[in-house]
Write a protein that binds this DNA or RNA. Sequence first.
DNA 1: TGTACTGTAATAAAAATAATTACAGAATGA
DNA 2: TCATTCTGTAATTATTTTTATTACAGTACA
Lengths: 136, 136
Amino acid sequence: MSNSRFPVSLHILTLLNEAKGAVVSSEYLAGSININPVLVRKEIMNLRKHGFVESKEGKGGGSFLAKSASDINLGEVYKSVRGSNVLGQSKNEPNPKCPVGRQINQHLDSLYSDAENALIANLSKQTLADFASKFE
Amino acid sequence: MSNSRFPVSLHILTLLNEAKGAVVSSEYLAGSININPVLVRKEIMNLRKHGFVESKEGKGGGSFLAKSASDINLGEVYKSVRGSNVLGQSKNEPNPKCPVGRQINQHLDSLYSDAENALIANLSKQTLADFASKFE
DNA sequence: TGTACTGTAATAAAAATAATTACAGAATGA
DNA sequence: TCATTCTGTAATTATTTTTATTACAGTACA
């Protein structure tokens, strides 16, 4: 997973929340985040797929929150963007001839998912509304 | 931070634990992990700096655990290898002209360190001994 | 029907990771 | 003593991942 997807998504959501329902273009979002608009649109595609935002095509189009900020949980947002695990990829290829190498991936996986669940549980204590309130 | 530093370090520590005090060469470790020996030596450098392992130079040299596996806490290991934060780098450069962009990094930082602490707390529930016992 | 958007693919550039090569220095033991 | 086998470390190259850019079809609006 790209290491900046979560921050970018949260930034987008925060801006959309500021907009209070108004439609915001990817160009504008990209300007605030200071990244490429295409990347913003890709991230929005994902946020839309997960029901956090909606988009409107055509002139005057753009995106807006699909639900109330207090119904958008940061743990859910995290889950929507994380591809692989946080602690390291399990796509390493340890030597199968080594007794440790042979089975380490499965143990790492369970260690990771456990730890990641703790992280998600922590993020889940906050909603977008909580986060956005810090910008007042 | 390299995303594979934690798994590599844990792999090294697990192998050293298996060796029960015997000195293990970086060549051997690299063979089991299936990565370059120089990378192993770099990781060992870090583990040594944090007091987890010791090394012996010269012929017949190598590394071994500096303390009992039950005194090596996985949360500590994680902390020793993590460079930046797990959830994303804060070295993005949001647009300072945007009210959200201007202050988002500080809010992300506190969100991250909070969440990461939860992750570390989870990892800290296990020692190397606990982890290694799974390979029996 | 022109304009301003999104959606999406394809490509290129940049950055981050990992591998490789190289070699000095340390410990061992014949 | 000196060849051997390690570590420590720097420098370079290769690979992979991430991000930016370019391009253009499709949609909605005025």
